[in-house]
């Protein structure tokens, strides 16, 4: 029985069109499915999943949320990155030119929370929309053509897209790229990298399947060691 606050329960609350793609058979953070999110509220998580899956939709390879990207983003926002590590946040905060880079007073976590809430209000039907409609809305977001109050639409989009992309392709220890979805898709063999005798073999496909940092050969894919140990 999955508790009602669980990730799977939250994401299964999506519209039927989306829900089909949101029943991950098995992924790296499957053991988190019956736990609550660390940072995201349920409504934010649902909206985020539909936005991520518009950016990286399902085809022969999993969609973003199927690959654990919502879990990844949740963990990133709850962690040091989300809380503003590596970000100089001393005021004042005058507006700058594009070439001067990020000038908002928000940590990534604040930016995403505000952005998701404001976008949810501005586009209440987003998650239920057809893919083409969702694409149009995200295009407008990326072009700064949506009013999100004190959050510039483009800055929110850029953060969202960066995190989504990172979640799909980062090592599975961070909760995304589950079952190496992103790495299998492109053919990246991973962290156990040692090619002195292969690099000059021209046009020969590399035969090894992906292995992440915590990969146990012959084990169960990307399950983090720490969690397994706890499970006994």
């Amino acid at each position: 029985m999955i508790p009602t606050y669980s990730r799977r329960a939250v994401l299964n609350g999506l519209a039927a069109t989306m829900a089909a793609s949101l029943a991950p058979a098995r992924h790296a953070f499957a053991q988190l499915d019956d736990r609550a999110f660390f940072f995201l509220a349920d409504t934010q998580a649902r909206l985020l999943a539909s936005m991520c899956d518009t950016l990286i939709p399902k085809d022969d390879f999993p969609s973003a949320s199927e690959a654990g990207v919502v879990d990844f983003i949740d963990l990133q926002l709850a962690g040091p990155y989300g809380q503003g590590e590596g970000l100089y946040l001393e005021g004042p905060f005058p507006e700058g030119s594009e070439s001067q880079g990020y000038q908002l007073p928000f940590t990534p976590a604040e930016l995403m929370r505000r952005g998701l809430n404001a976008f949810g209000e501005a586009e209440p039907g987003f998650a239920d929309g057809e893919e083409s409609r969702r694409e149009d809305m995200l295009t407008r977001l990326s072009e700064d053509d949506v009013d999100l109050g004190d959050v510039p639409a483009r800055a929110f989009f850029d953060e969202l897209w960066q995190l989504t992309n990172q979640g799909y392709f980062a090592d599975p220890i961070y909760g995304g790229n589950s079952d190496y979805a992103g790495w299998r898709m492109v053919g990246f063999p991973g962290a156990h990298a040692y090619y002195p005798s292969f690099v000059a073999n021209h046009n020969v496909p590399y035969p090894q399947p992906p292995m992440g940092i915590n990969h146990d050969p012959g084990g169960d894919g990307g399950l983090p060691r720490v969690t397994k140990r706890q499970e006994g």
Partner: peptide
């Protein structure tokens, strides 16, 4: 040391 060092997110993107 690898494989821990071979962490794109941590080193290449979180600097």
């Amino acid at each position: 040391a690898g494989p821990e060092e071979h962490d794109e997110l941590k080193y290449a993107l979180r600097y």
